[in-house]
Amino acid sequence: MKRLAVNRYKCGYCGACIAVCKFNANELVETYLEIYEDKCTLCMACVKTCPMNALEVVE
C-alpha cells in the first residue's frame, strides 16, 4: 500500500509541510514530524513543498 514516508535524516522540522496540509494529516511535535496515515490522501502538497526533499510516497 502506498504511504507517505519521512526521511528523518533530511527533515529540518520547519513545518512548511503542515502549513500546506488541508487534511490535518501531519503535526510537528517539537522536532519530530508525525504523519497520520488515516488522514493522509497522498495529495503530494507536502512532498512538493518540502525544501529538503525529505518526504516521498513509498509502496
Binding site: 520547519c14 513545518g15 512548511a16 503542515i18 502549513a19 500546506v20 496540509c21 488541508k22 490535518n24 503535526e27 510537528l28 502538497a45 512538493k48 513543498t49 518540502c50 525544501p51 529538503m52
Partner: peptide, 26 residues
C-alpha cells in the same frame, strides 16, 4: 505558533496555504 500553527486549526480558522501561497526556503 508559526507557519505550522495548531492554534489556528483548533480555533477553526482556516489558514491552509496552497502551493502558490508559500515559499519553500533553505
Amino acid at each position: 505558533d508559526g507557519v505550522e500553527s495548531r492554534v489556528a486549526k483548533w480555533a477553526g480558522i482556516d489558514t491552509t496555504l496552497r502551493l502558490n501561497e508559500i515559499e519553500s526556503c533553505v
